[in-house]
Design a protein around this nucleic acid. Structure first.
Lengths: 235, 235
DNA sequence: ATTACTAGTTTACGAGTAA
DNA sequence: TTTACTCGTAAACTAGTAA
Protein backbone atom coordinates (compact mmCIF):
# COMPACT_ATOMS: atom_id res chain seq x y z
CA UNK A 1 0.00 0.00 0.00
CA UNK A 2 2.43 2.65 -1.13
CA UNK A 3 0.95 6.06 -0.60
CA UNK A 4 0.16 6.70 -4.23
CA UNK A 5 -1.32 10.03 -4.99
CA UNK A 6 -4.87 9.56 -6.11
CA UNK A 7 -7.44 7.12 -7.48
CA UNK A 8 -5.32 4.57 -9.26
CA UNK A 9 -8.19 2.20 -9.58
CA UNK A 10 -8.98 0.81 -12.96
CA UNK A 11 -12.74 0.88 -13.33
CA UNK A 12 -14.85 0.31 -16.39
CA UNK A 13 -14.29 3.84 -17.57
CA UNK A 14 -10.54 3.34 -17.56
CA UNK A 15 -11.00 0.02 -19.30
CA UNK A 16 -12.85 1.83 -22.05
CA UNK A 17 -9.79 4.00 -22.56
CA UNK A 18 -7.61 0.92 -22.76
CA UNK A 19 -9.95 -0.54 -25.35
CA UNK A 20 -9.82 2.54 -27.56
CA UNK A 21 -6.04 2.54 -27.32
CA UNK A 22 -5.92 -1.13 -28.26
CA UNK A 23 -8.17 -0.46 -31.23
CA UNK A 24 -5.53 2.00 -32.35
CA UNK A 25 -2.97 -0.75 -32.01
CA UNK A 26 -1.40 0.18 -28.68
CA UNK A 27 -1.40 -3.46 -27.58
CA UNK A 28 1.00 -4.24 -30.38
CA UNK A 29 3.41 -1.38 -29.92
CA UNK A 30 3.93 2.33 -29.58
CA UNK A 31 1.03 4.38 -30.87
CA UNK A 32 0.81 8.13 -31.10
CA UNK A 33 -2.38 9.74 -29.86
CA UNK A 34 -3.57 12.98 -28.36
CA UNK A 35 -5.85 13.43 -25.42
CA UNK A 36 -8.22 15.39 -27.59
CA UNK A 37 -8.75 12.48 -29.97
CA UNK A 38 -9.45 10.16 -27.08
CA UNK A 39 -11.80 12.67 -25.52
CA UNK A 40 -13.79 12.87 -28.74
CA UNK A 41 -13.93 9.09 -29.07
CA UNK A 42 -15.08 8.61 -25.49
CA UNK A 43 -17.26 11.71 -25.29
CA UNK A 44 -15.61 13.14 -22.19
CA UNK A 45 -13.45 16.18 -21.54
CA UNK A 46 -9.73 16.27 -22.21
CA UNK A 47 -9.14 16.71 -18.50
CA UNK A 48 -10.92 13.47 -17.77
CA UNK A 49 -8.86 11.69 -20.39
CA UNK A 50 -5.74 13.08 -18.82
CA UNK A 51 -6.78 11.79 -15.42
CA UNK A 52 -7.71 8.37 -16.72
CA UNK A 53 -4.43 8.01 -18.53
CA UNK A 54 -2.64 8.89 -15.34
CA UNK A 55 -4.67 6.29 -13.47
CA UNK A 56 -3.87 3.66 -16.07
CA UNK A 57 -0.22 4.56 -15.97
CA UNK A 58 -0.22 4.41 -12.19
CA UNK A 59 -1.83 0.97 -12.36
CA UNK A 60 0.93 -0.17 -14.75
CA UNK A 61 -1.52 -0.75 -17.55
CA UNK A 62 0.39 1.37 -20.02
CA UNK A 63 3.63 3.20 -20.67
CA UNK A 64 3.70 6.74 -21.96
CA UNK A 65 6.22 9.01 -23.59
CA UNK A 66 5.02 12.55 -23.94
CA UNK A 67 6.07 14.79 -26.78
CA UNK A 68 5.16 18.29 -27.80
CA UNK A 69 2.04 17.49 -29.78
CA UNK A 70 0.72 14.38 -28.08
CA UNK A 71 2.07 11.21 -26.57
CA UNK A 72 3.27 7.76 -27.50
CA UNK A 73 1.39 5.06 -25.66
CA UNK A 74 2.06 1.34 -25.34
CA UNK A 75 -0.13 -1.02 -23.39
CA UNK A 76 1.68 -3.09 -20.78
CA UNK A 77 1.22 -6.80 -20.25
CA UNK A 78 -1.13 -5.94 -17.42
CA UNK A 79 -3.17 -3.66 -19.62
CA UNK A 80 -3.48 -6.21 -22.40
CA UNK A 81 -4.34 -8.83 -19.79
CA UNK A 82 -7.28 -6.81 -18.54
CA UNK A 83 -8.59 -6.40 -22.06
CA UNK A 84 -8.13 -10.08 -22.73
CA UNK A 85 -10.15 -10.94 -19.64
CA UNK A 86 -12.98 -8.80 -20.99
CA UNK A 87 -12.63 -10.44 -24.36
CA UNK A 88 -12.89 -13.88 -22.77
CA UNK A 89 -16.11 -12.83 -21.07
CA UNK A 90 -17.63 -11.72 -24.33
CA UNK A 91 -16.54 -14.90 -26.04
CA UNK A 92 -18.27 -16.89 -23.36
CA UNK A 93 -21.39 -14.86 -24.00
CA UNK A 94 -21.53 -15.04 -27.75
CA UNK A 95 -19.68 -18.15 -28.77
CA UNK A 96 -21.81 -20.80 -27.16
CA UNK A 97 -18.67 -22.63 -26.28
CA UNK A 98 -19.01 -26.37 -26.59
CA UNK A 99 -17.90 -27.48 -23.17
CA UNK A 100 -17.07 -26.29 -19.71
CA UNK A 101 -15.05 -28.30 -17.23
CA UNK A 102 -15.81 -27.93 -13.54
CA UNK A 103 -13.68 -29.54 -10.85
CA UNK A 104 -14.69 -30.57 -7.36
CA UNK A 105 -15.01 -33.24 -4.73
CA UNK A 106 -17.63 -35.93 -4.34
CA UNK A 107 -19.97 -35.17 -1.46
CA UNK A 108 -23.15 -36.58 -0.02
CA UNK A 109 -26.11 -34.37 -0.59
CA UNK A 110 -28.95 -34.03 1.85
CA UNK A 111 -30.96 -36.71 0.14
CA UNK A 112 -33.29 -34.20 -1.42
CA UNK A 113 -32.13 -35.15 -4.87
CA UNK A 114 -33.19 -38.75 -4.37
CA UNK A 115 -36.63 -37.62 -3.38
CA UNK A 116 -37.19 -35.22 -6.22
CA UNK A 117 -35.76 -37.34 -9.00
CA UNK A 118 -38.36 -40.01 -8.33
CA UNK A 119 -41.33 -37.66 -8.43
CA UNK A 120 -43.53 -38.56 -11.39
CA UNK A 121 -43.84 -35.01 -12.71
CA UNK A 122 -40.09 -34.89 -13.19
CA UNK A 123 -39.56 -38.52 -14.10
CA UNK A 124 -41.83 -38.36 -17.11
CA UNK A 125 -39.86 -35.40 -18.42
CA UNK A 126 -36.52 -37.09 -17.84
CA UNK A 127 -37.60 -40.10 -19.88
CA UNK A 128 -38.93 -37.91 -22.62
CA UNK A 129 -36.23 -35.25 -22.81
CA UNK A 130 -33.10 -37.03 -21.60
CA UNK A 131 -34.00 -40.46 -22.88
CA UNK A 132 -33.61 -42.39 -19.68
CA UNK A 133 -35.12 -43.06 -16.28
CA UNK A 134 -32.54 -41.67 -13.83
CA UNK A 135 -31.09 -43.62 -10.97
CA UNK A 136 -33.07 -42.43 -7.93
CA UNK A 137 -30.49 -40.11 -6.45
CA UNK A 138 -28.11 -37.36 -7.47
CA UNK A 139 -24.34 -37.27 -7.62
CA UNK A 140 -23.28 -34.22 -5.67
CA UNK A 141 -20.02 -32.41 -6.31
CA UNK A 142 -18.65 -29.60 -4.15
CA UNK A 143 -16.99 -27.31 -6.65
CA UNK A 144 -13.56 -25.84 -6.14
CA UNK A 145 -13.44 -22.08 -5.63
CA UNK A 146 -12.18 -21.56 -9.17
CA UNK A 147 -14.84 -23.79 -10.70
CA UNK A 148 -17.54 -22.22 -8.61
CA UNK A 149 -16.68 -18.92 -10.15
CA UNK A 150 -16.98 -20.53 -13.58
CA UNK A 151 -20.30 -22.06 -12.72
CA UNK A 152 -22.14 -19.13 -14.20
CA UNK A 153 -20.81 -20.15 -17.60
CA UNK A 154 -23.43 -22.86 -17.58
CA UNK A 155 -26.00 -20.17 -18.21
CA UNK A 156 -24.45 -19.50 -21.60
CA UNK A 157 -24.77 -23.13 -22.69
CA UNK A 158 -27.80 -24.58 -24.40
CA UNK A 159 -29.71 -26.57 -21.83
CA UNK A 160 -32.62 -28.98 -21.74
CA UNK A 161 -35.49 -27.38 -19.90
CA UNK A 162 -37.48 -29.34 -17.36
CA UNK A 163 -40.68 -27.40 -16.82
CA UNK A 164 -42.38 -26.82 -13.51
CA UNK A 165 -45.44 -28.86 -12.57
CA UNK A 166 -47.89 -29.18 -9.72
CA UNK A 167 -50.02 -31.70 -7.88
CA UNK A 168 -52.89 -31.06 -5.49
CA UNK A 169 -50.61 -29.80 -2.78
CA UNK A 170 -47.84 -27.66 -4.23
CA UNK A 171 -45.85 -26.49 -7.20
CA UNK A 172 -42.56 -28.07 -8.17
CA UNK A 173 -40.06 -25.72 -9.85
CA UNK A 174 -38.38 -26.23 -13.19
CA UNK A 175 -34.74 -26.98 -13.91
CA UNK A 176 -32.21 -26.99 -16.71
CA UNK A 177 -30.15 -30.06 -17.65
CA UNK A 178 -26.81 -30.11 -19.45
CA UNK A 179 -25.18 -33.24 -20.90
CA UNK A 180 -22.10 -34.09 -18.85
CA UNK A 181 -19.25 -36.54 -18.54
CA UNK A 182 -17.81 -37.33 -15.12
CA UNK A 183 -14.10 -37.99 -15.02
CA UNK A 184 -12.62 -39.49 -11.87
CA UNK A 185 -9.22 -38.31 -10.75
CA UNK A 186 -8.00 -41.88 -11.06
CA UNK A 187 -8.81 -42.14 -14.74
CA UNK A 188 -12.18 -43.74 -15.47
CA UNK A 189 -14.99 -41.66 -16.93
CA UNK A 190 -18.74 -41.93 -17.06
CA UNK A 191 -20.56 -40.59 -20.11
CA UNK A 192 -24.22 -39.85 -20.49
CA UNK A 193 -24.91 -38.04 -17.23
CA UNK A 194 -26.60 -34.65 -16.91
CA UNK A 195 -25.92 -31.71 -14.68
CA UNK A 196 -29.25 -30.52 -13.29
CA UNK A 197 -29.65 -26.90 -12.20
CA UNK A 198 -32.92 -26.13 -10.42
CA UNK A 199 -34.32 -22.75 -11.41
CA UNK A 200 -35.40 -21.83 -7.92
CA UNK A 201 -32.21 -22.33 -5.98
CA UNK A 202 -29.89 -20.11 -4.08
CA UNK A 203 -27.22 -18.76 -6.32
CA UNK A 204 -24.60 -19.00 -3.63
CA UNK A 205 -24.31 -22.77 -3.41
CA UNK A 206 -21.06 -24.41 -4.43
CA UNK A 207 -22.67 -27.76 -5.12
CA UNK A 208 -23.26 -29.27 -8.52
CA UNK A 209 -25.92 -31.94 -8.90
CA UNK A 210 -25.90 -34.62 -11.56
CA UNK A 211 -28.31 -37.34 -12.60
CA UNK A 212 -27.56 -40.39 -14.73
CA UNK A 213 -29.15 -43.69 -15.80
CA UNK A 214 -26.92 -45.58 -13.37
CA UNK A 215 -25.39 -44.83 -10.00
CA UNK A 216 -22.22 -43.00 -11.05
CA UNK A 217 -20.63 -43.53 -7.64
CA UNK A 218 -20.68 -47.28 -8.22
CA UNK A 219 -19.68 -47.13 -11.86
CA UNK A 220 -16.55 -45.10 -11.08
CA UNK A 221 -15.95 -46.38 -7.56
CA UNK A 222 -16.21 -42.92 -6.07
CA UNK A 223 -16.14 -42.11 -2.38
CA UNK A 224 -16.78 -38.84 -0.57
CA UNK A 225 -13.87 -36.50 -1.03
CA UNK A 226 -12.68 -38.02 -4.31
CA UNK A 227 -11.70 -35.44 -6.92
CA UNK A 228 -13.67 -35.38 -10.17
CA UNK A 229 -13.83 -33.26 -13.28
CA UNK A 230 -17.25 -32.70 -14.76
CA UNK A 231 -17.20 -31.93 -18.45
CA UNK A 232 -20.41 -30.10 -19.25
CA UNK A 233 -21.56 -29.85 -22.86
CA UNK A 234 -24.04 -27.76 -24.75
CA UNK A 235 -27.27 -29.61 -25.50
CA UNK B 1 -36.04 14.64 -25.28
CA UNK B 2 -38.87 13.20 -23.25
CA UNK B 3 -38.59 14.40 -19.71
CA UNK B 4 -37.49 11.07 -18.32
CA UNK B 5 -36.82 10.98 -14.65
CA UNK B 6 -33.13 10.64 -14.18
CA UNK B 7 -29.89 9.58 -15.79
CA UNK B 8 -31.00 7.00 -18.31
CA UNK B 9 -27.66 7.03 -19.95
CA UNK B 10 -25.94 3.74 -20.53
CA UNK B 11 -22.31 4.26 -19.67
CA UNK B 12 -19.56 1.74 -19.23
CA UNK B 13 -20.68 0.94 -15.71
CA UNK B 14 -24.13 0.01 -16.93
CA UNK B 15 -22.58 -2.01 -19.72
CA UNK B 16 -20.71 -3.98 -17.11
CA UNK B 17 -24.02 -4.89 -15.53
CA UNK B 18 -25.35 -6.01 -18.90
CA UNK B 19 -22.28 -8.15 -19.36
CA UNK B 20 -22.68 -9.89 -16.03
CA UNK B 21 -26.33 -10.54 -16.81
CA UNK B 22 -25.40 -12.00 -20.17
CA UNK B 23 -22.82 -14.24 -18.54
CA UNK B 24 -25.68 -15.60 -16.48
CA UNK B 25 -27.55 -16.25 -19.69
CA UNK B 26 -29.92 -13.29 -19.72
CA UNK B 27 -29.30 -12.77 -23.44
CA UNK B 28 -30.83 -16.16 -24.09
CA UNK B 29 -33.90 -15.83 -21.93
CA UNK B 30 -35.31 -15.06 -18.54
CA UNK B 31 -32.79 -15.36 -15.73
CA UNK B 32 -33.42 -15.01 -12.05
CA UNK B 33 -31.01 -12.84 -10.10
CA UNK B 34 -30.96 -10.64 -7.04
CA UNK B 35 -29.44 -7.23 -6.72
CA UNK B 36 -27.23 -8.51 -3.95
CA UNK B 37 -25.57 -11.08 -6.18
CA UNK B 38 -24.94 -8.50 -8.84
CA UNK B 39 -23.58 -6.10 -6.24
CA UNK B 40 -21.11 -8.72 -5.06
CA UNK B 41 -20.02 -9.53 -8.61
CA UNK B 42 -19.52 -5.89 -9.48
CA UNK B 43 -18.20 -4.78 -6.12
CA UNK B 44 -20.68 -1.96 -5.65
CA UNK B 45 -23.58 -1.40 -3.29
CA UNK B 46 -27.02 -2.85 -3.83
CA UNK B 47 -28.37 0.66 -4.21
CA UNK B 48 -26.06 1.31 -7.09
CA UNK B 49 -27.10 -1.95 -8.74
CA UNK B 50 -30.71 -0.94 -8.31
CA UNK B 51 -30.06 2.41 -9.95
CA UNK B 52 -28.14 0.88 -12.83
CA UNK B 53 -30.83 -1.69 -13.50
CA UNK B 54 -33.36 1.13 -13.60
CA UNK B 55 -31.16 3.01 -16.04
CA UNK B 56 -30.83 -0.05 -18.25
CA UNK B 57 -34.55 -0.66 -18.13
CA UNK B 58 -35.22 2.96 -18.99
CA UNK B 59 -32.89 2.68 -21.94
CA UNK B 60 -34.78 -0.41 -23.13
CA UNK B 61 -31.77 -2.62 -22.68
CA UNK B 62 -33.61 -5.17 -20.58
CA UNK B 63 -36.99 -6.28 -19.32
CA UNK B 64 -37.64 -7.04 -15.67
CA UNK B 65 -40.24 -8.86 -13.70
CA UNK B 66 -39.86 -8.45 -9.98
CA UNK B 67 -40.84 -11.12 -7.52
CA UNK B 68 -40.60 -11.35 -3.76
CA UNK B 69 -37.06 -12.67 -3.54
CA UNK B 70 -35.41 -11.18 -6.60
CA UNK B 71 -36.25 -10.49 -10.20
CA UNK B 72 -36.38 -12.17 -13.57
CA UNK B 73 -34.31 -10.34 -16.15
CA UNK B 74 -34.15 -10.70 -19.92
CA UNK B 75 -31.88 -8.64 -22.13
CA UNK B 76 -33.65 -6.84 -24.95
CA UNK B 77 -32.48 -6.72 -28.54
CA UNK B 78 -30.99 -3.33 -27.77
CA UNK B 79 -29.14 -4.65 -24.77
CA UNK B 80 -27.69 -7.61 -26.65
CA UNK B 81 -26.79 -5.26 -29.48
CA UNK B 82 -24.71 -3.09 -27.20
CA UNK B 83 -22.86 -6.11 -25.89
CA UNK B 84 -22.31 -7.36 -29.42
CA UNK B 85 -20.81 -4.03 -30.41
CA UNK B 86 -18.35 -4.35 -27.54
CA UNK B 87 -17.58 -7.88 -28.57
CA UNK B 88 -16.87 -6.74 -32.11
CA UNK B 89 -14.38 -4.21 -30.77
CA UNK B 90 -12.57 -6.87 -28.80
CA UNK B 91 -12.54 -9.17 -31.78
CA UNK B 92 -10.92 -6.45 -33.83
CA UNK B 93 -8.30 -6.14 -31.13
CA UNK B 94 -7.48 -9.78 -30.56
CA UNK B 95 -8.46 -11.66 -33.68
CA UNK B 96 -6.05 -10.28 -36.21
CA UNK B 97 -8.82 -10.04 -38.76
CA UNK B 98 -7.81 -11.27 -42.17
CA UNK B 99 -8.33 -8.22 -44.30
CA UNK B 100 -9.39 -4.62 -44.25
CA UNK B 101 -10.49 -2.70 -47.33
CA UNK B 102 -9.77 1.01 -47.49
CA UNK B 103 -11.08 3.22 -50.28
CA UNK B 104 -9.65 6.44 -51.58
CA UNK B 105 -8.32 8.47 -54.46
CA UNK B 106 -4.91 8.39 -56.07
CA UNK B 107 -2.88 11.44 -55.19
CA UNK B 108 0.65 12.69 -55.66
CA UNK B 109 2.62 12.72 -52.46
CA UNK B 110 5.28 15.26 -51.70
CA UNK B 111 8.03 13.11 -53.07
CA UNK B 112 9.26 12.20 -49.63
CA UNK B 113 8.34 8.60 -50.16
CA UNK B 114 10.64 8.35 -53.17
CA UNK B 115 13.49 9.70 -51.15
CA UNK B 116 13.07 7.44 -48.16
CA UNK B 117 12.36 4.22 -50.00
CA UNK B 118 15.76 4.43 -51.67
CA UNK B 119 17.71 4.97 -48.46
CA UNK B 120 19.98 1.95 -47.90
CA UNK B 121 18.94 1.42 -44.25
CA UNK B 122 15.38 0.82 -45.39
CA UNK B 123 16.13 -0.83 -48.68
CA UNK B 124 18.08 -3.66 -47.10
CA UNK B 125 15.15 -4.41 -44.83
CA UNK B 126 12.63 -4.32 -47.67
CA UNK B 127 14.63 -6.88 -49.61
CA UNK B 128 15.00 -9.07 -46.60
CA UNK B 129 11.54 -8.80 -45.07
CA UNK B 130 9.27 -8.12 -48.04
CA UNK B 131 11.29 -10.06 -50.57
CA UNK B 132 11.74 -7.34 -53.15
CA UNK B 133 13.50 -4.10 -53.95
CA UNK B 134 10.69 -1.52 -54.11
CA UNK B 135 10.13 0.83 -57.00
CA UNK B 136 11.69 4.11 -55.87
CA UNK B 137 8.53 5.94 -54.93
CA UNK B 138 5.29 5.43 -53.05
CA UNK B 139 1.72 5.15 -54.26
CA UNK B 140 -0.27 7.68 -52.26
CA UNK B 141 -3.99 7.29 -51.63
CA UNK B 142 -6.17 9.94 -50.00
CA UNK B 143 -8.63 7.92 -47.96
CA UNK B 144 -12.34 8.59 -47.92
CA UNK B 145 -13.76 9.85 -44.64
CA UNK B 146 -15.24 6.44 -43.85
CA UNK B 147 -12.03 4.59 -44.65
CA UNK B 148 -9.98 7.06 -42.70
CA UNK B 149 -12.00 6.19 -39.66
CA UNK B 150 -11.29 2.51 -40.33
CA UNK B 151 -7.62 3.17 -40.75
CA UNK B 152 -6.99 2.41 -37.12
CA UNK B 153 -8.00 -1.21 -37.73
CA UNK B 154 -4.60 -1.60 -39.37
CA UNK B 155 -3.14 -1.55 -35.90
CA UNK B 156 -4.93 -4.79 -35.13
CA UNK B 157 -3.40 -6.60 -38.11
CA UNK B 158 -0.14 -8.45 -37.98
CA UNK B 159 2.45 -6.28 -39.65
CA UNK B 160 6.02 -6.58 -40.85
CA UNK B 161 8.19 -4.34 -38.75
CA UNK B 162 10.83 -2.19 -40.36
CA UNK B 163 13.17 -1.15 -37.57
CA UNK B 164 14.70 2.27 -37.16
CA UNK B 165 18.30 2.89 -38.10
CA UNK B 166 20.80 5.71 -38.14
CA UNK B 167 23.75 7.07 -40.05
CA UNK B 168 26.30 9.65 -38.98
CA UNK B 169 23.82 12.48 -39.20
CA UNK B 170 20.43 11.38 -37.92
CA UNK B 171 18.03 8.65 -36.91
CA UNK B 172 15.49 7.24 -39.32
CA UNK B 173 12.26 6.01 -37.70
CA UNK B 174 10.73 2.58 -38.05
CA UNK B 175 7.58 1.57 -39.90
CA UNK B 176 5.11 -1.27 -40.21
CA UNK B 177 4.24 -2.90 -43.54
CA UNK B 178 1.06 -4.79 -44.40
CA UNK B 179 0.58 -6.94 -47.54
CA UNK B 180 -1.94 -5.24 -49.81
CA UNK B 181 -3.72 -5.55 -53.12
CA UNK B 182 -4.64 -2.43 -55.05
CA UNK B 183 -7.90 -2.60 -56.99
CA UNK B 184 -8.64 0.11 -59.52
CA UNK B 185 -12.20 1.29 -59.88
CA UNK B 186 -12.08 0.21 -63.49
CA UNK B 187 -11.38 -3.40 -62.64
CA UNK B 188 -7.68 -4.30 -62.82
CA UNK B 189 -5.85 -5.21 -59.63
CA UNK B 190 -2.24 -5.25 -58.52
CA UNK B 191 -1.14 -7.87 -56.02
CA UNK B 192 2.01 -7.95 -53.98
CA UNK B 193 2.16 -4.36 -52.76
CA UNK B 194 2.56 -3.27 -49.15
CA UNK B 195 0.97 -0.49 -47.16
CA UNK B 196 3.73 1.22 -45.20
CA UNK B 197 2.86 3.06 -41.99
CA UNK B 198 5.71 5.09 -40.48
CA UNK B 199 5.74 4.87 -36.71
CA UNK B 200 6.51 8.52 -36.19
CA UNK B 201 3.80 10.17 -38.19
CA UNK B 202 0.89 12.38 -37.41
CA UNK B 203 -2.20 10.38 -36.79
CA UNK B 204 -4.39 12.94 -38.39
CA UNK B 205 -3.30 12.36 -41.95
CA UNK B 206 -5.78 10.84 -44.36
CA UNK B 207 -3.11 9.54 -46.69
CA UNK B 208 -2.14 5.92 -47.14
CA UNK B 209 1.28 5.09 -48.58
CA UNK B 210 2.10 1.93 -50.47
CA UNK B 211 5.28 0.43 -51.88
CA UNK B 212 5.56 -2.32 -54.48
CA UNK B 213 8.16 -3.99 -56.71
CA UNK B 214 6.83 -2.10 -59.74
CA UNK B 215 5.25 1.28 -60.30
CA UNK B 216 1.61 0.51 -59.51
CA UNK B 217 0.42 3.68 -61.28
CA UNK B 218 1.79 2.34 -64.56
CA UNK B 219 0.66 -1.22 -64.01
CA UNK B 220 -2.95 -0.16 -63.44
CA UNK B 221 -2.94 2.99 -65.55
CA UNK B 222 -3.85 5.19 -62.61
CA UNK B 223 -4.05 8.97 -62.65
CA UNK B 224 -4.54 11.43 -59.83
CA UNK B 225 -8.11 11.37 -58.60
CA UNK B 226 -8.80 7.80 -59.73
CA UNK B 227 -10.73 5.73 -57.17
CA UNK B 228 -9.03 2.66 -55.76
CA UNK B 229 -9.75 0.07 -53.12
CA UNK B 230 -6.79 -1.13 -51.10
CA UNK B 231 -7.25 -4.59 -49.62
CA UNK B 232 -4.91 -4.85 -46.68
CA UNK B 233 -4.07 -8.29 -45.31
CA UNK B 234 -2.53 -9.60 -42.14
CA UNK B 235 1.10 -10.57 -42.53
C1' DA C 1 -1.01 22.96 -30.46
C1' DT C 2 -0.25 19.80 -26.34
C1' DT C 3 -0.60 17.88 -20.79
C1' DA C 4 -1.92 18.64 -16.16
C1' DC C 5 -2.74 21.47 -12.31
C1' DT C 6 -6.32 24.10 -9.17
C1' DA C 7 -10.89 25.42 -8.17
C1' DG C 8 -15.90 25.15 -8.22
C1' DT C 9 -19.84 22.47 -9.47
C1' DT C 10 -22.24 18.52 -10.51
C1' DT C 11 -22.97 13.93 -10.29
C1' DA C 12 -22.70 9.39 -8.32
C1' DC C 13 -22.15 6.88 -4.31
C1' DG C 14 -23.55 4.21 -0.05
C1' DA C 15 -26.07 4.41 4.65
C1' DG C 16 -30.39 4.40 6.41
C1' DT C 17 -35.34 3.66 5.85
C1' DA C 18 -39.75 2.24 3.98
C1' DA C 19 -42.63 -0.81 1.49
C1' DT D 1 -35.48 -11.54 2.57
C1' DT D 2 -36.18 -8.42 -1.47
C1' DT D 3 -36.32 -3.29 -4.39
C1' DA D 4 -36.03 1.58 -4.31
C1' DC D 5 -36.66 5.75 -2.02
C1' DT D 6 -34.24 10.09 0.58
C1' DC D 7 -30.26 12.36 2.02
C1' DG D 8 -25.58 13.71 3.43
C1' DT D 9 -21.07 12.87 1.82
C1' DA D 10 -17.42 11.70 -1.25
C1' DA D 11 -15.74 11.26 -5.71
C1' DA D 12 -15.56 12.74 -10.51
C1' DC D 13 -16.42 15.96 -13.64
C1' DT D 14 -15.63 20.43 -16.48
C1' DA D 15 -13.79 25.22 -16.75
C1' DG D 16 -9.96 28.00 -16.43
C1' DT D 17 -4.95 28.59 -16.09
C1' DA D 18 -0.10 27.47 -16.40
C1' DA D 19 3.74 25.28 -18.43
Amino acid sequence: MAGNGASLEVGFDELAVLKVLALEGAHRGEVKISGGDLAADLDVSTQTVSRRLQALEGADCLDREQVADGQFVTLSEDGVGRLKAEYEDYRRIFEAKGTVTLDGQITTGMGEGRHYVTLPGYNVQFEEKLGYDPYPGTLNVTLSAASNRERSILGSLEGITITEWEDEERTYGGATCYPATVEADTGPTFEGAHVIVPHRTHHDTDELELIAPERVRDELGLLDGDEVSVHVESA
